[in-house]
Write a protein that binds this DNA or RNA. Structure first.
Length: 813
RNA sequence: GCCGAGGUGGCGGAAUGGUAGACGCGAGGGACUUAAAAUCCCUUAUCCUCUCUCUGGAUGUGUGGGUUCAAUUCCCACCCUCGGCACCA
């Protein structure tokens, strides 16, 4: 008797069976062919899992399952990035302590995640808020401190007035806070930094060997922003002050007609002439009021004032005026720039506005352009002109010679500059790992000794953001510090950026961790080290890391830096954490990003309840290419529902018949196609080829049981529950996910007969069916005999006859 | 401004030099049903031709050129959309 497919019953049953048999728990020590499949772990918010989570996790799981069936020992963990603003903001709103709400959210989320039916190893889950975890976050800080990669410095930093905390450079997007969108302001504060810039070159070089999306590598490259150039020293007239300018195009130095200094340059007040002092001071005041946002998006019209001072050109000894202008940034290069209006657009704009001279020093193709509009196209093929002894040299040759001469005279040197800034890791927020530093009564910082880790986050705190770190309110925290270190000692009140927590979690998964509130986890913890070096060596780098592209210049750069630092400290053997990175696309609704404020969030729950996880995840995969994302549609899911119902019926409720040669060929083509497609994450076309096979199977009225089992195996990565149930129904033993992936027989791929298309003068005029062994001559004769083709051939004499093996004949008359 | 990705039916998409539109959604028609849903069958790029049956032809992958027997695919120029960076010297 035929029983229709009942997803909710079937899926719940298999999820239970998998859990009971512990088939997804990986023995990290014993594994022979390790495959580390990782997705970016979520933060546990009070909201339900949304379509975006599913779109990330389900295909990633399908890929992991595919690898498992290929014979790998797949490790696929899941955890929670639970510190941070969402939980803290929720706590502020409701008054519930974040520890309580987070624990609750983690539990809810685990239940939801389990409904997807992913092959997660829940025995090795973790949460970054667990003291057992964050002691390692703190340990990492101490290691950085010990190795002088963590330091405290006062300076201008990004501050979000709404989140009431400082932010790292990477966390400012379009001049506003990455979290809440508020305009970021600059504040002068003393903060903790990690010296990521020390690794600039290494981070750049390492990119080359990574199998990452090209755009992500380019984004990191641009973020690191390497520029090769040199410093040039300028003597100030009637003074012994020397100003350095950085330039990448020193070959244009004879075109310098002015030099510009940033308004916040520390030497500026000493450089301004008395006559210009009032004007300059007014200008400095005016520009300092500009917010970061205005500086970036306000009118790009350049403003500036003359300082009244002149510099002496290092080659011509001519007087060059020093101007003050805010288009020169203090935090890049030397804060002083040589102005070459003829060959730099910004300098050109500035020179035109303040009628400064424009001197050409590189050969131009259209001279007018210099005077009226834009600068001439600067290309390294150009020739240097009007530049003393360098006249006539090609740009690159002249550039080298000029730097050499400057170095000889000790008034310049080669220099490589990076745009990357050190990572600001301290935050004036409550819900984070406390920075393990204490201050002695003189205010000098000392690391908290390791035996006091975890340096626990105090609980006697109101978590309202005031701009002051919430931990300052804790009586317990101060008392604890004085108890351990002595009277007058104070703790560091700032907590760490959550990106610190997520910079090493992929290592920590390898160590089993204590139970989560739900009782998950094995309960044992490898104490004493962040990661077992043998396991690290065996499992890292992560084989496949899937997550959003928004992390290109945040998490993905921090994690690489931390891994490199850990290697240098001697704790790990790998330099790079992630061998392959893939970004899933974005699922939109009616073309717009889903967001609560827009009210267009699609909840997976009702679809999953109605159709089951398999249908839902398969539909997401069928929508389009995984890396492209797509627009949500309610109706399209019907097609996947029909596919599942028809397949169920076709494999279990149709008579067993011998396969025709045609069907065998189709089956083996499908094995080939599905294998190749899943291997490159083209789930949409893998599914479509299974649909095609099903269409043929229905037409034929059945297949052998062996073929039915092969089809179930092909389905196992993408619809895991359904595939298990089919396998069981087809008399398979064991779990289908533990079966070997089907292989195809190349000999069976070719059909007996093939269709050859005939083109006349490039247009299709007919086709013929020939045996696969037909010779070229036979085929050409047959082609020319085709009725419709004859009509077109009559138009003229044959000029060319082309035969493409097994595909087409092209005739030209 | 710079860097990157992309532009194909009513819609999601397939095809990376060889039959454009696989597969699916939607739509139209039919079968089943008292009826509806579900299911099944047929049609479905546009236009002309044929529509009793068989057809045959023109146009068509953002725009304009080019290479080729053959171009969605390769080359040149341009337009548009999306993502990232942005006064970085």
């Amino acid at each position: 008797m035929f029983k229709p497919y009942n997803p909710s019953e079937v899926e719940a049953r298999w999820q239970q069976k998998w859990a009971d048999a512990k088939i997804y728990e990986t023995d990290l020590q014993k594994a022979k062919k390790p495959y580390y499949s990782l997705v970016m772990f979520p933060y546990p918010s009070g909201d339900k899992l949304h379509v975006g989570h599913w779109y990330n996790y389900a295909p990633a799981d399908s890929f992991a399952r595919f690898q498992k069936m290929q014979g790998y020992d797949v490790f696929s963990p899941m955890g929670f990035d639970a510190f941070g603003l969402p939980a803290e903001n929720y706590a502020i709103k409701t008054g519930v302590h974040p520890a309580i709400s987070t624990a609750k959210n983690v539990e809810t989320m685990i239940a939801q995640l389990k409904k997807i039916g992913c092959m997660y190893d829940w025995s090795k889950t973790l949460s970054t808020t667990d003291p057992e975890y964050y002691q390692w976050t703190q340990w990492l800080f101490l290691e950085m401190y010990k190795n002088t990669l963590a330091y405290k410095k006062k300076g201008n930093v990004n501050f979000c007035p709404s989140c009431q905390t400082v932010l790292a450079n990477e966390q400012v997007k379009d001049g506003s806070c990455e979290r809440c969108g508020t305009d970021v302001v600059q504040k002068s504060l003393e903060q903790w930094f990690w010296n990521i810039t020390k690794y600039s070159q290494k981070l750049l070089d390492g990119l080359e060997d990574l199998d990452w999306p090209n755009k992500t590598k380019i984004m990191q490259q641009n973020w690191i922003g390497r520029s090769e150039g040199c410093d040039v020293s300028w003597n100030v007239e009637n003074s012994d002050i020397v100003l350095d300018t950085f330039t990448t195009t020193v070959d244009t130095i004879y075109g310098v007609t002015f030099v510009v200094i940033a308004p916040d340059h520390p030497m500026l007040s000493k450089l301004v002439s008395d006559a210009e002092r009032t004007t300059v001071e007014a200008y400095i005041k005016q520009t300092s009021k500009k917010s970061e946002f205005d500086r970036q998006f306000g009118d790009k019209v350049k403003t500036g004032v003359f300082s009244g001072t002149y510099l002496l050109h290092p080659f011509t000894k001519k007087k060059v005026p020093l101007w003050v202008a805010d288009y020169v940034l203090m935090n890049y290069g030397t804060g002083v720039v040589m102005g070459v209006p003829a060959h730099d657009q910004r300098d050109m704009d500035f020179a035109k506005k303040y009628t400064l001279p424009i001197i050409q020093s590189i050969e131009s193709t259209s001279h007018e352009s210099l005077v009226y509009d834009n600068i001439d196209k600067y290309s390294v093929q150009g020739t240097i002109i009007d530049s003393g002894e360098y006249t006539g040299m090609k740009i690159l040759e002249g550039r080298k010679k000029i730097i050499d001469d400057l170095q000889k005279r000790s008034i310049g040197k080669r220099k490589i500059l990076y745009r990357l800034r050190d990572w600001l890791v301290s935050r004036q927020r409550y819900w984070g790992a406390p920075i393990p530093i204490v201050y002695d009564p003189e205010g000098k910082p000392h690391p908290v000794p390791e035996e006091h880790l975890p340096w626990t986050l105090p609980t006697d705190v109101e978590f309202k953001p005031t701009g002051k770190s919430p931990l300052t309110e804790s009586k317990e925290f101060l008392a604890r510090t004085e108890n351990i270190f002595g009277k007058g000692w104070t703790p560091e009140y700032d907590t760490m950026d959550t990106f610190v927590c997520s910079s090493f979690y992929y290592l920590r998964y390898l160590m089993s961790v204590p139970p989560l509130p739900s009782g998950e986890g094995l309960g044992g913890r490898e104490a004493g080290k962040l990661v077992d070096p043998a396991l690290e060596k065996k499992w890292l780098p992560v084989s496949m890391y899937i997550g959003g592209p928004e992390h290109a210049c945040m998490h993905l750069i921090y994690a690489r830096f931390v891994m490199m630092a850990l290697k240098d400290f001697g704790y790990v053997s790998n330099e790079e954490p992630f061998k392959i990175v893939v970004h899933q696309g974005l699922i939109t609704n009616k073309g717009a990003k889903m967001s609560k404020s827009k009210g267009n969030v699609v909840s997976p729950d009702s679809f999953v309840a109605q159709y089951g996880s398999d249908v839902f995840r398969m539909y997401l995969m069928f929508m389009g290419p995984f890396e492209a994302g797509g627009d949500w549609s309610d109706t399209g899911i019907r097609g996947t529902v029909r596919f599942v119902d028809r397949l169920w019926k076709a494999l279990l409720n149709t008579k067993v018949i011998q396969d025709s040669a045609l069907f065998q060929a189709a089956l083996h083509r499908t094995i080939k196609k599905v294998t190749e497609d899943i291997a490159v994450l083209h789930f949409n076309t893998a599914i479509s080829s299974l649909m095609q096979l099903l269409n043929l199977l229905e037409e034929k009225g059945g297949c052998t049981q062996e073929s039915a089992r092969i089809i179930s195996c092909l389905l196992a990565p993408i619809a895991p529950h359904l595939a298990e149930e089919l396998w069981l129904g087809l008399g398979g033993t064991g779990f289908i996910i533990e079966q070997k992936w089907p292989t195809y027989d190349p000999a069976l791929l070719v059909e007996e007969n093939m269709t050859i298309v005939i083109q006349v003068n490039g247009k299709v005029r007919g086709d013929i069916l020939v045996s696969k062994d037909a010779s070229k001559e036979e085929i050409l004769t047959l082609a020319k005999a085709n009725e419709n083709v004859k009509k077109w051939l009559a138009a003229g004499d044959m000029k060319k006859e082309i035969y493409i093996l097994g595909k087409l004949v092209s005739l030209v008359v």
